[in-house]
């Protein structure tokens, strides 16, 4: 846009609104950070101390000293589970999406319709049967319980199929004439050309798995197997009323890695949102 345009009064008002909104968005996290460096004595006092003159690391030290809190472990679990889940989803759904996009086979329309029909049914319906089957397979309290059930991601198949269909077929035909197998075409041509779509989808799938609370709560019961969202509920449940500074430190600790990833990949993430919603955009 223009570089030396002067601000009109109307634009000034809009900037005020936007900056106010930045304040509203950032304040809860900034305030929690500032509070996490205070002692319980100053926290439970009225009027509240917004920024303390005597910061203490006590809460942050306690976060890693308490026997029942394993935040680094929970963080590692979350990372392992979400990464494995995402990679598996990308591999499995892109194979299926390629078949639906490019290959002719009996039953194609029926199977595709079946997939779309299950989109109508919310995930909660499968919660209990999947819990029981994982119990029978002795998979409760293992990472597999959080990695495997969501792999058949129908939305992912649908989005990737749309994307694959937009790739010109000439490239694939040329490769086949040169002697490539179907898998070779998928692996060496279609997947590399789909990297933007795959990244957008990966972010979407990763985020959903990373932030899931209900399912990990149900399928894990041992403290070492918990993921970060469940860990936070343990932290909040055990110390929420007595040691708020500790709980706030835990929340901020869990925010840092996510926020760093967001700062680095924000452009991809924001592009990914419009891609996965199916509304195009740029």
């Amino acid at each position: 846009m223009s570089t030396t345009k002067r601000l009109s009064p109307g634009d000034m008002v809009l900037y005020v609104v936007l900056i106010l909104m930045v304040f509203v968005v950032s304040f809860p996290l900034l305030y929690a950070t500032s509070q996490s460096f205070q002692t319980n004595q100053t926290l439970y006092r009225y009027p509240p101390t917004i920024v303390t003159t005597e910061p203490t690391l006590q809460n942050w030290q306690n976060l890693f000293n308490r026997e029942d809190l394993m935040l680094p472990r929970w963080l590692a679990n979350s990372f392992y589970v979400a990464t494995s889940h995402t990679l598996l989803v990308l591999l499995v759904t892109s194979l299926a999406a390629y078949a639906f996009a490019r290959l002719k086979f009996p039953g194609r329309n029926v199977l595709f319709f079946l997939l779309l029909a299950t989109l109508m049914i919310p995930g909660q319906v499968t919660l209990i049967p999947n819990y029981l089957v994982l119990r029978d397979l002795k998979m409760l309290n293992t990472p597999s319980a959080m990695i495997l059930p969501g792999v058949a991601n129908v939305t992912a198949v649908f989005l990737l199929r749309q994307f694959f269909m937009s790739i010109p077929t000439e490239l694939e035909e040329a490769a086949i004439i040169d002697g490539a197998s179907r898998f070779g075409v998928y692996w060496r041509i279609v997947l590399p050309l789909s990297i933007p779509a795959l990244i957008a989808l990966a972010i979407f799938v990763f985020q959903a798995n990373w932030n899931d609370l209900l399912w990990p709560l149900v399928v894990t019961s041992q403290v070492e197997q918990r993921t970060l969202p469940v860990g936070l509920s343990i932290l909040n449940g055990s110390y929420g009323t007595q040691e708020r500074g500790l709980v706030l430190a835990g929340a901020i600790f869990s925010t840092i890695p996510v926020l760093l990833v967001y700062l680095v990949f924000q452009r991809w993430i924001i592009r990914g949102v419009t891609f996965t919603s199916g509304f195009g955009g740029r």
Partner: peptide, 19 residues
């Protein structure tokens, strides 16, 4: 900046706002 809260998990949001 406005999209940033959406990446947080519900526990973080609830703990910060609870206080």
């Amino acid at each position: 900046a406005f999209y940033a809260p959406s990446i947080l998990s519900v526990g973080i949001v609830a703990i910060c706002w609870g206080w």
